[in-house]
């Protein structure tokens, strides 16, 4: 712990001297280059979110709300709702019920302010498999069908599996991503340096990278946001499913659960013996993806008619 503080202190000191010099050097370019124009000094020298005091967090949220108001002309609420006590989120998905309609994909896009066309970002990939064993190599997610479900196929939606032993968290060289107490793996977008090691480490392709400035029509923005969740992202940061942290931490279901027309998606507290997910884990034949990798996901799949 002590060592960590020391490192971060040295980093702070370096950043402060460096950025002052850099800002001075870049000032003449500011008008010419939009990337430099969008440069936010306060974002750059900000502390790691986990090391902030409650007061600093409050200040940060207010600053972001003001920033988004200026940028999008709409009133945002940026929350930092902490995890609830005795809650560990879990997810169960009934593959016998899923019809591959992709309603979840677009509900997620809307709720989480994901970039629309042409730099499209989807947290959920619905993989289509021919009946038989689950062979990910032979699945596809670009299927265009008139009607679903189709005969001879089944569908497996894949999103962040919120692993207990998350390889992405281990891979991050600067601790910009971590597992919260309630089991949600989150990203501090302001801290991410765009190295994408986490994406290489994730065996589920659960993370997405903003190769360009996200494209979202202003009127479609969801202004109810969480710092670690759906607040507007910027170019060059990694993002991922957070079980709709802005909703789930307030007792509501994630958007994909709410939209699913067949009720295949189940969400709840793994520590509550009466929750839907616990009942499924205890009474149905469940499995997890790539179990042999020992990532220990909190995302369970099951077949049950």
């Amino acid at each position: 712990m002590k060592e960590n503080k020391k490192i971060s202190f040295v980093r702070r000191k370096f950043l402060k001297t460096f950025t002052v010099a850099a800002a001075a050097a870049l000032a003449p370019l500011a008008k010419a280059n939009s990337a430099v124009k969008d440069f936010d000094f306060e974002d750059f020298v900000q502390k790691n979110f986990k090391e902030m005091t409650p007061k600093e967090v409050e200040k940060l949220l207010k600053r972001l709300e003001k920033k988004y108001k200026e940028k999008y002309g709409r009133d945002f609420v940026v929350k930092a709702t902490p995890p609830m006590e005795n809650v560990e989120f879990g997810y169960a998905l009934n593959l016998s019920k899923c019809i591959g309609c992709r309603r979840c994909v677009y509900a997620c896009v809307k709720e989480n302010n994901l970039s629309r066309k042409p730099y499209q970002i989807h947290y959920i990939r619905v993989m289509r498999f021919k009946n038989g064993p689950i062979d990910l190599e032979k699945s596809e997610h670009y299927y265009e069908s008139e009607r679903v479900p189709e005969k001879g196929y089944f569908y497996v939606p894949i999103q962040c599996q919120q692993c207990r032993k998350a390889p992405c968290v281990k891979a991050c060289p600067i601790k910009a991503t971590w597992t919260e107490k309630d089991g949600i793996v989150v990203v501090d977008y302001n801290w991410c340096i765009a190295c994408r090691y986490c994406m290489a480490a994730c065996p589920y392709m659960g993370r997405r990278f903003n190769w360009a400035e996200p494209e979202i029509p202003v009127e479609e923005l969801n202004t109810n946001t969480h710092y670690l969740g759906n607040r507007p992202r910027m170019k060059n940061v990694v993002e991922k499913c957070t079980f709709c942290i802005q909703k789930s931490r307030e007792g509501r279901y994630p958007a994909c659960v709410e939209i699913c027309p067949v009720g295949a998606r189940k969400f709840g507290n793994l520590l509550d013996p009466n929750s839907e997910v616990r009942r499924i884990i205890e009474t149905k034949r469940i499995f997890r993806l790539k179990e042999d990798l020992n990532t220990d996901p909190r995302f369970f799949y099951f077949f049950h008619s």
Partner: peptide, 8 residues
């Protein structure tokens, strides 16, 4: 059966 939303 439903019409699926567009592919990515």
């Amino acid at each position: 059966a439903l019409r699926p939303d567009p592919a990515p």
